[in-house]
Amino acid sequence: MKKYASLAIVASAALALSACGKSDDASEAAAEDTVEMPADELPAMEPSAAAAPMAPVVDASAAADAEANAVRDTANNAAAVAAAAQAAADEGEDPQTPAQ
């Protein structure tokens, strides 16, 4: 008799759990969860002080341009030093190296 009682309890528990389950049927239409609202209708709120600041957006082209500008400036400086050294050599003076 205990076996039948245990079997009945287990069967009823299995049916109860399966009745509580959620069905993700693909044939059901999807409902949109978000609501869009124009920015001027949003409630005025101060940003939370506890919220983490947003990370800046890195623009790869700006970083590449900055690197190219640095290389160009270095090349221009080297050319200016070489021209100054050549001019000093032409005049017979000792060329001075720039302090770094």
Score class of each variant (00 low, 15 high):
residue 20 C to N: 06
residue 43 P to E: 09
residue 41 E to G: 00
residue 31 A to M: 09
residue 67 E to I: 05
residue 10 V to D: 08
residue 55 A to E: 13
residue 24 D to W: 15
residue 46 E to V: 09
residue 35 V to K: 11
residue 79 A to R: 12
residue 6 S to H: 10
residue 30 A to Q: 12
residue 100 Q to V: 15
residue 27 S to W: 04
residue 38 P to R: 02
residue 78 A to C: 02
residue 40 D to A: 05
residue 39 A to W: 08
residue 72 R to F: 03
residue 49 A to H: 07
residue 95 P to A: 04
residue 15 L to E: 01
residue 93 E to P: 02
residue 3 K to L: 07
residue 68 A to V: 01
residue 45 M to A: 14
residue 89 A to S: 15
residue 11 A to Q: 06
residue 91 E to G: 03
residue 19 A to V: 05
residue 26 A to C: 00
residue 5 A to I: 14
residue 98 P to M: 05
residue 74 T to V: 04
residue 99 A to H: 01
residue 84 A to S: 08
residue 36 E to R: 04
residue 23 S to N: 14
residue 7 L to C: 01
residue 10 V to L: 14
residue 8 A to T: 06
residue 15 L to H: 00
residue 71 V to W: 02
residue 3 K to S: 08
residue 86 Q to C: 03
residue 66 A to Q: 08
residue 79 A to N: 13
residue 20 C to T: 09
residue 9 I to F: 12
residue 66 A to I: 02
residue 81 V to M: 07
residue 23 S to C: 12
residue 25 D to R: 11
residue 43 P to Y: 07
residue 74 T to K: 12
residue 53 P to C: 07
residue 5 A to F: 05
residue 67 E to Q: 11
residue 59 D to C: 06
residue 42 L to I: 08
residue 86 Q to I: 04
residue 68 A to M: 04
residue 66 A to W: 03
residue 100 Q to Y: 14
residue 40 D to K: 05
residue 21 G to P: 00
residue 57 V to I: 11
residue 55 A to F: 00
residue 30 A to P: 06
residue 26 A to R: 10
residue 37 M to I: 15
residue 5 A to R: 10
residue 94 D to M: 11
residue 32 E to G: 07
residue 29 A to Q: 09
residue 19 A to R: 01
residue 36 E to N: 01
residue 100 Q to L: 14
residue 67 E to M: 04
residue 54 M to L: 12
residue 63 A to E: 15
residue 45 M to I: 10
residue 18 S to F: 08
residue 54 M to K: 12
residue 12 S to Y: 00
residue 39 A to I: 07
residue 84 A to N: 06
residue 83 A to G: 01
residue 80 A to T: 12
residue 72 R to P: 00
residue 44 A to V: 11
residue 75 A to M: 09
residue 83 A to I: 14
residue 84 A to E: 15
residue 60 A to G: 02
residue 44 A to S: 09
residue 44 A to C: 02
residue 71 V to A: 14
residue 64 A to E: 14
residue 51 A to G: 03
residue 10 V to A: 15
residue 29 A to F: 09
residue 27 S to L: 07
residue 1 M to I: 04
residue 46 E to M: 09
residue 50 A to Y: 08
residue 39 A to Y: 11
residue 1 M to Q: 07
residue 72 R to T: 00
residue 85 A to L: 05
residue 69 N to I: 02
residue 4 Y to C: 01
residue 82 A to R: 11
residue 80 A to S: 11
